[in-house]
Amino acid sequence: MMRDERLWMALGWIVLALAPWWLPWLGGYSALGTKVLVYGLGVMALNLLLGFAGGLSFGHAAYFGLGAYGAGMTLKYLAPSTPLALLAGTVVGGLAATAFGPLVMRRRGIYFAMITIAIGQLLYFVAVRWNEFTGGEDGLAGFSRQPLHFGGWVLDIRDENKYYYVVLVCFTVAAWIMRGVLRSPLGHTWVAIRENRRRAEFLGVRADLYIWAAFAISGTFMALAGALNALLFNFTSPQDLHWILSGDFVIMIVLGGMRNFWGPLLGALIYIVAQDYLSSVTDNWMTFIGLLFMVIVLAFPRGILGLLRRRGKAAA
């Protein structure tokens, strides 16, 4: 089992590392691959909270957007440094998630969801109204990712292929950390709380504090994704904070399968590739995504990866 998973991970990683070579072959382009990784990272971060700890956040775009604005504003107003921008975006989003955590940590189910949406919409309106600083409705432009300096050596990541590798490295490190945490006692505690919060509390577990931790960690990695996204397009807008994007994240997770660590990545891949392809064919692409979503929810409630897993088990 364990060795099987390692093998798959190694294979998957090789496929990802070679993406700039094979993507054009399939009619793709490396920025599309970058976007899949960025969103994949974001939804894996959200799924740590949603799928593993059972916290139904429907407002996680808040932290994606904060990461994006944090990174963009750092480049625009503070210093022309890519690492600093990524760090600033991640820290801003992570701190916000940590600060908002206590508002949600005792809520359950739908109440949890409603408060997370409300927080997200609050930030959305701040971004829209605070014109002179955020660019308002038009979004924040006028910044661009800067070459990386390693001592005397310069890596010009303004090139799309090179930026893809920056994102791949961030994705790999973040995924490795999240996977490690989910396999630690902390991760076991989240799952236990999801399964039976009362029972866990009777054993002496302060469930609210652990949900808070999940919220903060999840928000931090989501913010990293947002920062990477802002630097991918050298642009961000209030749409990156909006509840519609939060909903898209949840759709990606459900598509791929939320009981599996890698499921959301698969969901992001399907969603973004379908969006990229369908939106070039029809304006009604969202209808098709909606249909696909319904088919998957009805036919495979555990998501696509959940289904593949089942098949694998049955065959074994």
Partner: peptide, 27 residues
């Protein structure tokens, strides 16, 4: 009162980790 979707091993392991006071450890 159990953790229904987890294995027997995972149910018991959670108790063991709780008793050992390591619930919050990420590593």
């Amino acid at each position: 009162e159990v953790f229904p979707d987890l294995s027997v091993y995972e149910n018991v392991r959670f108790g063991v980790e709780t008793a050992a006071g390591v619930n919050g450890r990420p590593w």
